[in-house]
């Protein structure tokens, strides 16, 4: 089954290559450099850290 062999060999070579490329790119682009900043990414000027969103139900407030 040559078709299968090509697909298998291709993916065996290609996938780790893509993973390594992603890791290399991430390191080069400084994605691992400032984790403190990365952790703040979900927040912006209109909803900064400390603003709770979605507390829409009554609940028991302290």
């Amino acid at each position: 089954m040559p078709v299968i062999s090509f697909i298998l060999l291709g993916s065996v070579v290609l996938l780790p290559a893509v993973a390594l490329w992603a890791l290399r790119w991430a390191t080069a682009a400084g994605q691992f450099r400032c984790p403190d900043k990365a952790a703040l990414l979900p927040f912006d000027e209109s909803e900064p850290v400390g603003v709770e969103t979605d507390l829409i139900l009554g609940g028991n407030r302290r």
Binding site: P42, G50, T53
Partner: peptide, 25 residues
């Protein structure tokens, strides 16, 4: 995304989250 967003607090450790992603992968 949603836990930090709802309680308005960043994730505990970004290092751990990166470790979690790559070990899952």
């Amino acid at each position: 995304y949603f836990i930090p967003k709802v309680i308005g607090r960043p994730i505990h450790s970004y290092y751990l989250s990166v470790l979690g992603f790559w070990s899952l992968a």
